[in-house]
Amino acid sequence: MTKTDKIRKGDVRTATRLIRNIENNIPEARSTIRTLFPFTGKARVIGLTGPPGAGKSTLIDSLIALYRDRDKKVGALLVDPTSPFTGGAILGDRIRLQRHAEDPDVFVRSLATRGALGGLSKAAGDAVHVMDAMGKDVILVETVGTGQQEVEIMNHVHTVIVVIVPGMGDSIQAIKAGILEVADVFVINKAEREGADKLYQELMAMLNMVDSFPGGWRPPVIRVGNLFDKEIFEKNIAELSNSIDAHYRNLVENDLLGDRVRRKVTAELNEALQFSILAPILEKLIAEGEFDTLVDKLLKKETDPYTCAEEVAKKYLRKQPLKGVAG
């Protein structure tokens, strides 16, 4: 049986190893993804993003329980940051999900960012494909704890849920660009806390300023209340899942699903180009010590980054037009 067959049959060991080989940039992994690609595109992919400690993992835990009640097979990808100093990482999101650990229809995989800045790991897109090909009906993707700018998630999912909590800053924070703009659904988590009503009003005011929404979809704001009050919490989670479904229906009815998929494919092409063109050059520069030489020159102010880039482009991309390559 080929790896592709095993993964399509849902084999966890083969799937998780493939994800690891993608993380490690093993060339053979790319060819397996190639053979899996035709079998992807069936799963519903849902992303959760928001600041650290907002409750993303706990919401994912509840959503997994809800989808399992509906007999859906679930995959979850959890991204946590890599240390910029040691390259190590503590991947701790799984703690919240352990009640599903023994459920064979739930596959949870943690990923470290490994230096990626968009809130995900570079392997995240392909890891979604792997889970999709495994036959997962729903794939939940959790970003690292985000600030304002980590919007990569929107390139990989059908529905982006932005999770925010009361007490994170004054109202001006809400009208800034970035993460709040990519939300399809807002969750005000820990809504029993002081400041939740004010936050709700501020979000409403922010949304009221928008002239028109694509497909007429105005992101709903769901308040998720006290985790320890089971009745309220489950009601709120059901409301959240209804909003996720409604958003997906809206994409389909307004012919916007294609745009989302296009966005995803565009991002993947970008990444593949980086991998095939930029990465080998960078690797060569580093291996030959040229990279360090350039850094030394920069430190001595003998050159500037743009000149360096142009020289590198001249050397390695000489058959291509040079302007634009170096920016």
Binding site: S83, T86, G88, I90, L91, G92, I95
Partner: peptide
């Protein structure tokens, strides 16, 4: 924490 500082990817399950 120590494994993180050694450059490992550490999954902690509580």
């Amino acid at each position: 924490r120590c494994f993180r500082d050694a450059g490992f990817e550490v999954i902690y399950t509580g």
